[in-house]
Design a protein around this nucleic acid. Structure first.
Lengths: 211, 211
DNA sequence: TGGCATACTGTTCAATTGAACAGTGATTGG
DNA sequence: CCAATCACTGTTCAATTGAACAGTATGCCA
């Protein structure tokens, strides 16, 4: 994998790459060679083709040969493949969001690299309600990202405990798992009947309220 | 604008829409009618065309007629247009990230709606270093999103004060602006020579460290 | 019972678009 | 000074792909 392909690119090639990225972002699909030609005012289509070839050779673009439409550019691979669309299941998930066909409120788009997760990670999001996790610097209104997997002690989890869903720190003492709010005003939760871990927290997104 | 177009869609139409979205996300460009045909095993290309027409009519897709390649689908408009690519300028920005042609470390992709900002917002990101803002629940390692604009008193800002860049709360007392760390161990900062506000914090992204 | 939308089959045509070929001139590194 | 890369012009061809036309069968609504 090239470390920073753009460093080897010429100024003109960066311009073309910029146009391709921009077009992709704004239109949802890469430009055609003729659109590139028109944008830069080339008299020949080949000028665009040459640039694309150079960009593909240097790893800045990946070229799906022949395949017409998306034919040439496609975004820098990393950028594309790593974009996650994370379903937001509301404040208090009624069921297991991973299992049921439950409709998410909406989707949150974040790239995997920025969250430090794999591009294939299956994440879901929940809106935090209440102040029980302020000790872990998680505030009311924050959106937390979770992945369904078994938690290690100390992890922050969304759990279904005795039918109610909450965000808490998962701890184990003498082989017995329990949940602890990161706020001294809340007591530890010992599961009476069952403790179902819906997901382990991997990240957080906050909207800073306007001052 | 249709409120929730998917509600009026038939099961089959939702399937096709799902395939189009998925293809878009994974390949960076929409599928062709023939790719849809192949995926669902239609004997006729027209079956795919019919579905796309229905989806466009119901507002679930937007159809760029004739224009071959990205020709038909394109994502649901809102989803596409609102994706921000936010440049990350490192831990301590040396200059004004908005002014200079300074190369960002990398880009963070987040959709505008999830950050509560306009799709046209110009944001940049900084990595937080140190514990001077723990009182505002901003931790070492967090990534903060900022927009260049004049701060209101109480806002959290990235500021260039006497040549050094820091994240602090912006306050005004008796007409005099100053910066306050949200950590009692740090003193207030009164600008000796100049106070340049680089940006106002609008959001935050955190990678939860594995427990 | 007729009309309309859905969900397809099967075929043909034209437009969009990628790709190749044959050049020119400037620059740069060995 | 030669080779390679860059940055183009100008033309032609073939593949991909969208679009249209003509049907069939089903279910639903009124």
């Amino acid at each position: 994998m090239p470390p920073t392909p753009s460093s080897e690119l010429t100024a003109r090639q960066r311009e073309v790459l910029g146009f391709v990225r921009d077009h992709q972002r704004r239109h949802g699909h890469p430009p055609t060679t003729r659109e590139i030609q028109a944008h830069f005012g080339f008299a020949s289509q080949t000028a665009a083709v040459d640039h694309l070839r150079a960009l593909a050779r240097k790893g800045a673009l990946q070229h799906h040969a022949g395949k017409a439409r998306g034919h040439l550019p496609a975004l820098a691979a990393a950028l594309r493949t790593s974009l996650l669309e994370i379903p937001l299941y509301g404040t208090i998930p009624a069921g297991l969001p991973t299992a049921a066909e439950q409709e998410p409120d909406r989707y949150i788009s974040v790239d995997a690299a920025s969250l430090g997760v794999s591009a294939r990670a299956r994440l879901f999001a929940l809106r935090v309600r209440g102040d029980s996790m302020t000790g872990a610097n998680i505030l009311d209104g924050d959106t937390v990202f979770l992945t369904p997997r078994d938690p290690r002690p100390g992890a922050i989890v969304a759990a279904l405990i005795d039918g109610e869903s909450t965000l808490k720190r998962f701890l184990v003492q003498r082989g017995r798992p329990f949940l602890r709010a990161e706020n001294p005003r809340y007591p530890d939760l010992l599961p009476a009947t069952e403790l179902i871990i819906q997901g382990v927290m991997v990240g957080l997104l906050r909207q800073q309220p306007a001052a």
